[in-house]
Design a protein around this nucleic acid. Structure first.
Lengths: 109, 109
DNA sequence: TTGATGCGCAACCGTTGGTTGCATTGACCC
DNA sequence: GGGTCAATGCAACCAACGGTTGCGCATCAA
């Protein structure tokens, strides 16, 4: 079954952008992330807590900094759940599978 | 790009279960859905409003009932976005994995 | 030592998912 | 028509959450 905690962790758009940034840069702190996001450092810190609680990121304190990195295995698990939900809906929507594929092609262009 | 409204509409676990039920039964009313969910009819009605606003369901009033059905094209669009996000993360993870493997190979030689 | 920087904590605000309670409206039976 | 039952809609209220501001504390560097 699907893990609602894991899903809701990646359900927030800000948290998705944070994961993107962390993956692109190979890690970061609350401050460095907040510089590249339209929210304050405190908001980022709260999101990092959420992501840490579900194991999507890990923190390594060093001095006055707290560096966060993505747990790739856990993110892979979340990705699998996204695909699982999508697949289950897709299965029910087989009748209009062609429509879905057309839209997906359009979205990529 | 991704449509945050559409994503957040399917982000709620209750709304996902509602979509599941509507797909399985080919439609339903707020009352019939509430019977099969752990929330009240009013909560279901609010969710149906949200789903209706982003076009994931359509309502057809008939007598004192309001029957809702899934808009398959719009749901297909949502599914496409799920896969798109999953694919982008997957791509980054694959890249990281390849880099990690290359570094490991280089370290062994 | 002093100043700047990164962090954590607490209070507060708006939105949202959820509840309860009540009013309304349509269907059905007499 | 009148009465009753079922489905909906509306409003008030509550808790959780994403976001903010403000402040205090620790750590690095001049």
């Amino acid at each position: 079954m699907i893990d609602d905690d894991l899903w809701s962790a990646v359900g927030d758009p800000t948290r998705r952008r944070m994961l993107d940034l962390l993956l692109a840069d190979g890690g970061g702190t609350a401050t460095t992330l907040a510089e590249r996001l339209p929210v304050t450092r405190q908001a980022v810190a709260k999101h990092l807590l959420v992501l840490d609680r579900v194991g999507l990121v890990h923190a390594t304190p060093s001095g006055r900094e707290r560096r966060y990195e993505v747990d790739e295995a856990q993110l892979a698990r979340a990705v699998a759940q996204l695909s699982a939900v999508g697949a289950s809906w897709d299965a029910r929507l087989q009748r209009i599978k062609r429509i879905a594929e057309r839209i997906q092609r359009e979205a990529q262009s």
